[in-house]
């Protein structure tokens, strides 16, 4: 099975050096969403202060296969609260 690497930048950088074996790209996409969901749930509220959250998924040649990005934008009505 191919190995996929899930590199995350969410205020601190996490380079996935180990990777995870998954059946195919569809499996990698599914795993990425599951991982992102867990991380976003755990994460400190940096996302609400404009910190960009990025997950870059690569193959074992470090070729980027897809990227997930999350940005939270507060509307003016919140007055920065």
């Amino acid at each position: 099975m191919p190995r996929y690497y899930f590199h995350v930048s969410d205020g601190q950088r996490f380079d996935d050096l180990q990777g995870t074996e998954l059946p195919d790209l569809a499996g990698a996409r599914k795993e990425a969403l599951r991982f992102a969901s867990g991380l976003l749930t755990d994460t400190k509220p940096d996302l609400w202060t404009g910190e960009e959250w990025t997950m870059r998924v690569t193959d074992d040649t470090d070729l980027t296969l897809f990227t997930l990005m999350f940005v939270a934008t507060n509307a003016a009505a919140t007055n920065g609260k």
């Binding site: 899930f6 996490f14 996935d16 995870t20 795993e31 991982f35």
Partner: peptide, 12 residues
């Protein structure tokens, strides 16, 4: 109930 990469990251 965690993805493998999430386990990997937390253990790291």
């Amino acid at each position: 109930g965690l993805s493998v990469v999430h386990v990997n990251r937390v253990i790291h």
